[in-house]
Each structure stands twice: as C-alpha cells, then as structure tokens.
C-alpha cells in the first residue's frame, strides 16, 4: 500500500467568535504515527472533524494523496481511505460487537458498482470472517455476539478501533483512544496502534497520555489555540522550550500540567453522572469513561512513573 499523503493547507474553523482552528498548515507523507497534542480546546478534535467530513471548514482545505477532501461528504471521505474513532465513543449501541465491525465492511462491499446491493449478501461469510479477525486483533474474539451496549468502556473503545480499521483505510485518526483505559488495556492498544502503523497505515493520533504519545509517535505536532506551536520528532518536541513551558512542565510525567485542569473537570462530570440520573441520560456524558474503568486505571497507575519514562522509546528516525 502506498503511504497516505496528507496536506492541511491554511485551515481555519470558526464557531461564532471562537477560532477552533486558526490557519493551520501541516503536511505528512512519511507514514507511521503522527501524534497531535495540545491542551483541551486546542482544536484537535475539530481538525479530525474537518478531515473526516463531520464539520465543514470556514476556509482552507485538506488533501489526501493530492485529492481535495474538504467539502466531500463524510462517507465519500471514508471511501477515499480515511477512518476515525471518536473522543465521545460512537459505537452502534443496538448492534452486537461483530455487527459493529461488519457495518463498514458491508458499506464498502455495497459501494462496488453492478453487484452493488447484493455484494454484502453474497460475501456475507467472508465479511464476517474478516470482522472476526479484526476483533481478534483487538482482543475481542470471544465476545463477538455480545451487545456492544453491555460492554465496559475499555472494550467499547477497542470495538471502535476495530471498526475504524475494518475498511482498510490509508489514514486512521484516533481521538484520545487511550483515555479511560486501564494501564494494561492502554499498553495493549498502544502496541496495536504501533503495529497498525508498521503495517503501512498512517495513524493520526490525538492523545492526552504524553508518555504513550512520545513512545509510539514518529512525529509529534503541538496545537495551541488552533495554531501549530511545534512540530518534530518526539525528542525535538520534548526539548522545545515553548512546549516545555507551555504544557509539559519541567518533568515529563504521566499526569503533566496539561492534564490537571481538565482531569478535575472530568472527575466532576463523572461524579455527576454517577449521582444525577438526568446527567446519565445525556449520551455525550454517559459515554464518558465510566467510573469503574477510570478508578481501576487510577489504582493501577503508580505515583512515580519514572520507570515508564526510562523505557526506551521506539527507535526514532
């Protein structure tokens, strides 16, 4: 497979008075994992929304392998080879695990002309096998028939990743895939992301877990208030004075400065979900990391994470 060539050219997205993305230009054609970091509200999700066709840009454009994708409908962009996951979990909650992954496979099979509508019927077994294989890759092989709504948070995240990988994308965009996962789950998924990238699929990774980002990314771009603050190898970005002072603090820790403010907010939100049945009714919040998964993660996390830092990052080019 040829490497995806992604170009973002002078992209601006405004919501009323807010410039969520402000004249961003960024090109990437060397494959691997491109990490996209920045504090909450920096515009990372908005960039993903524009690239996936979920939101229109105010101005500027994006191209994939030379073809303009801004302005295309989301399903066309998906067919051009772009897949994504969502920060606020968007699984198909009334379908089983297997069927969640089957959906993109069938959509792609049906897109073929002539056979069209019948392709998913004729190739049903084959598509199911492929979906089952993908779910095996994210460690969900033994829960294929489980309704996805009854899964814990971490498992749903993995289903979402499998679904994103289903239609053989060239570019996979993951929006905070590790958030709310336990340490073990997080490590597994990080390994999977790396292996996806190594198999030739370009990964655009938005993630708050700095250690993981620095470990698995080949290149890291830092966004602040919709603008590109820094861009380079993980080592370069970590060494960058502006980035250090702005986000990372003096010590690159598991829970760096950039995390603190919104962590507290998230915890408060979760508290409310747990106590206010009204809050739980809102899919946006209910989909947030569920309490159990997060407490488990917190318990799992050693207070001092220097050992993790010392772990050799992947060979950097």
């Amino acid at each position: 497979m040829t490497e995806a060539r992604l170009e973002i050219i002078d992209l601006t997205v405004r919501f009323g008075g807010v410039r969520a993305v402000d004249g961003l230009s960024l090109s990437h054609s060397q494959g691997g994992v491109l990490g996209l970091i920045g504090p909450n509200g920096a515009g990372k999700t908005t960039v993903l929304n524009v690239l996936s066709g979920a939101a229109p840009p105010t101005s500027g454009e994006a191209r994939l392998n030379g073809r303009r994708i801004t302005g295309l409908r989301a399903d066309r962009i998906a067919r051009a080879g772009v897949a994504r996951t969502f920060q606020n979990l968007q699984t198909f909650h009334s379908l089983s695990v297997l069927h969640n992954v089957l959906v993109p496979l069938e959509a792609r099979a049906a897109a073929k002309p002539v056979v069209g509508l019948f392709a998913p019927l004729l190739r049903g077994g084959q598509l199911r096998q492929r979906a089952a294989d993908l779910l095996g890759r994210v460690g969900m092989a033994d829960q294929l028939d489980t309704p996805v709504a009854s899964l814990p948070y971490g498992a749903r995240r993995r289903v979402e990743v499998a679904r994103a990988l289903a239609a053989d994308p060239r570019l996979v965009m993951l929006d905070e895939p590790l958030a709310g996962l336990s340490r073990a789950e997080s490590d597994d998924l990080a390994r999977l992301i790396r292996s996806v990238a190594d198999s030739g699929v370009t990964v655009l990774l938005v993630e708050h877990d700095m250690v993981a980002v620095m470990r698995i990314s080949d290149r890291v771009a830092v966004l602040e208030q919709g603008q590109l603050l820094a861009d380079g190898t993980p080592a370069e970005v970590q060494a960058d004075e502006r980035v250090r002072s702005a986000y990372l603090g003096d010590e690159l820790d598991y829970d760096p400065l950039l995390h603190k403010g919104d962590k507290r907010a998230e915890a408060a939100a979760r508290q409310r979900v747990a106590t206010d049945p009204d809050a739980a009714a809102d899919p946006g919040l209910a989909a947030d990391p569920d309490v159990a998964a997060d407490q488990e993660a917190a318990a799992d996390r050693p207070p001092q994470t220097t050992d993790r830092r010392r772990r050799e990052p992947r060979a950097q080019q």
Binding site: D75, I77, A78, Q90, L95, E106, R108
Partner: peptide
C-alpha cells in the same frame, strides 16, 4: 435483518460514526 437494516441501525445509533464507516446516510 439484512445488512441494509444493520446500516439503518447504524445511522440511527450514531450518525457520524455511520458516515465515517462509509454509509451514505
């Protein structure tokens, strides 16, 4: 019950995810 019904379910459950899965909503 067919794949069409499945994609309709996907559209109803999570429209953005359905579109990003290649479904013409």
């Amino acid at each position: 019950r067919s794949w069409l019904g499945r994609s309709l379910t996907a559209v109803g459950d999570a429209p953005h995810a359905a579109a990003s899965s290649g479904i013409d909503i």
